[in-house]
Design a protein around this nucleic acid. Structure first.
Lengths: 218, 218
DNA sequence: GTCTATATAACGATAGAC
DNA sequence: GTCTATCGTTATATAGAC
């Protein structure tokens, strides 16, 4: 008779992951000790290695949860009739997460780690691409509906939308009294202006817009 | 009779800093050993501590050089008559730097370190603010000249311009075949659309733009 | 100023009792 | 499954000869 309760095991794994996320955000991967994670999770140092083979597996585990969340977010967005609204909802949700200092620190930490750990890089790349590909679908729908400018390829637009939510990250770290609501408002306006159909008589071609005399990209 | 040549001392300091920057970009702060820095710089482990009191001072030293470079960049931009052109030149220069993978890795590493080292954070914050404040001047000139939309405060615009050059950082790390020229082109277009004076009859107030039915920020 | 050699400290991971 | 105790490794920074 097995006394192991898989649900309980999974719950404890989650609890360790949560505790570890806080530690990694605060001190970074290398400087958080396994002992600290155990203390935060309320277990002893030996127990940690019953749930994870090593410290890196704990770190990676945190970001494996993201795939499910992203899938759920995209599935919800795809139910929205207005594709423009759907895009904004996705961007808003992701942005609001990233504007939390703890999340921002964790994201910067994982970005730094990715450049030196190919396995981790593949995981994060997969998460990023899932979000981007979901947005490609929504962008395509929005272009077809005439709601956004067809001047750029949907994939290019989607990539930049994902990049834009990362843009304020360093300010979240450096400027403690940053107002998340204000940042989000500017970002939405920035995106709206980026994507707005050009109001000129001649439709834009090849990513160009009519020269109206202001700052030009060329 | 002093045999010390200050110029030679400074040159060697620079050489160590250059070697260290490569190491830190490749392996991160904690995982690069002082021995590695010394090997890369062609000196022995004892000598390093003749030039820097400890490993962190080497890391910080890399970013102390940035202040001069930013000042020079802004001084050059302020000589340009057209403020829109000046803004684009600054953004382009900074962006081109950040699109190099080695620089990108170093920037992500320092961002991660900043969240845990108040002294380093102050240094980087100073560098960021110097760039931003220089841009505030250029933006103000451009608004007065009617070249960019007055809908946002110059400080807000300048902060976002600085943030925008950071936006592609994670993709630089995750997508090795990213085309820097293409990224820069999209970024310029994005900025142009963000800043373009609104073409409507009623001028925008309070950061709002006329509702034209597409994706809206509210 | 530059080198070799090393003191000292800390961490990740394991062993083995219960 | 969880604990305590500890091993082996590795790194920073210093000491002291030249």
């Amino acid at each position: 008779m097995r006394t192991v309760d898989p649900a309980k095991h999974e719950a404890k794994r989650r609890a360790i992951l949560d505790a570890a996320a806080g530690c990694f955000a605060m001190k970074g991967f290398e400087k958080t000790t396994t002992a600290e994670i155990c203390r935060a999770a309320g277990i002893s140092t030996g127990s940690l290695f019953h749930y994870f083979p090593n410290k890196r597996a704990v770190f990676v585990g945190i970001f494996e949860q993201d795939a499910d969340e992203t899938a759920a977010l995209l599935a919800a967005a795809e139910q929205i009739e207005d594709p423009g609204e759907a895009i904004l909802q996705v961007i808003t949700h992701v942005s609001e997460q990233l504007l939390h200092p703890v999340i921002a620190k964790l994201v910067l930490e994982v970005a730094a780690q990715c450049s030196r750990d190919a396995d981790l890089a593949r995981l994060i790349q997969g998460n990023d691409r899932a979000l981007r590909d979901g947005l490609v679908g929504l962008v395509t729908r929005a272009v077809d509906a005439g709601r956004i400018d067809p001047g750029f390829a949907p994939k290019t637009v989607a990539s930049w939308l994902v990049a834009l939510v990362d843009a304020p990250l360093s300010r979240v770290i450096l400027e403690p009294d940053l107002d998340p609501a204000a940042e989000l408002a500017v970002m939405k306006e920035l995106i709206a202006r980026f994507l707005r159909p050009v109001l000129s008589i001649s439709p834009p071609a090849g990513g160009r817009v009519p020269d109206t005399g202001e700052i030009s990209p060329g």
